[in-house]
Design a protein around this nucleic acid. Sequence first.
DNA 1: GCGGGTGTTCACGC
DNA 2: CGCGTGAACACCCG
Length: 281
Amino acid sequence: MPELPETETIKKGLQKYVVGHTIENVQVLHPGPIQGDINNVIGKKVISSRRIGKGLTLDLSNEYSLAIHVKLTGQLIYRGLETQGVKVSETKVGTVPNKFTHVIFKLDHDSKLYYNDQRRFGWIKILKTSDVLELAFFKNMGPEPFKDLTLGKFENIVKGKSTNIKPLIMDQTKIGGVGNIYANDALFRAKIDPNRTSKSLAPSEIRSLYDSLLAVMEKSFKEGGASELSFVNILGQEGNYQNHSLVYGKAGKKCPRNDGGAIKRIALGGRGTFYCEKCQK
DNA sequence: GCGGGTGTTCACGC
DNA sequence: CGCGTGAACACCCG
């Protein structure tokens, strides 16, 4: 799932297909990801879904919520009368149930919501709705692109920091929702070397980076998210951004600007970092 | 067998 | 305290 566009794609699906259903029962195949008392969701109606950074909620009629983070390989897949005959991704294991299915929410009207997670890094926390934003992960979340992150706020976040620009824009407590794919592509679009320190950026570069972050994520919304790894939407279908990425995952390939440069892969903040030395200064 | 993977958190060293 | 690095979580893929 993983980053803001993918998580937003899941949220749209939850809103369309899951909100309004009552959770009739919960089948826990592997209890690993679940925290909290399952009894607080059984028999309750899903009244809304929210996305907070890369996190999700399903809010229930009894003022309890499911707070969900799918980390790298979690999937939420809905199957019901409306989705009969919908083709799902076999390659991204969007089929259900499968050996990575840990939880099955049985909903009314003969439908189900499946939670799959190959690497089991994700979590589903059951807690009072009023406590969701008290979870450290949500409480410490920085402003989000397309929500409350303005250019002015972005300038203040970036300005004067001695840290590298790439880890900074991926720091969820500074900015909510940006991950490795879009950080790499935004820096490329803004022609900024990921090794630069934040404070070295000129005002025009900060503006360009802000615009680029929005642009690459908007492109991804249109492509249905990035399915490089295991992301699928609520119907189990892949997104297409991975076929349109600028530099992410393209080590050794020609620079998309066709300037004679090749895309280099380095490690920065422990994450794979892709850029063109020729046009990213 | 080895390295690397859309994320987050923690431990450690400076 | 802040910042960087590396590891851990667990498992598949090339």
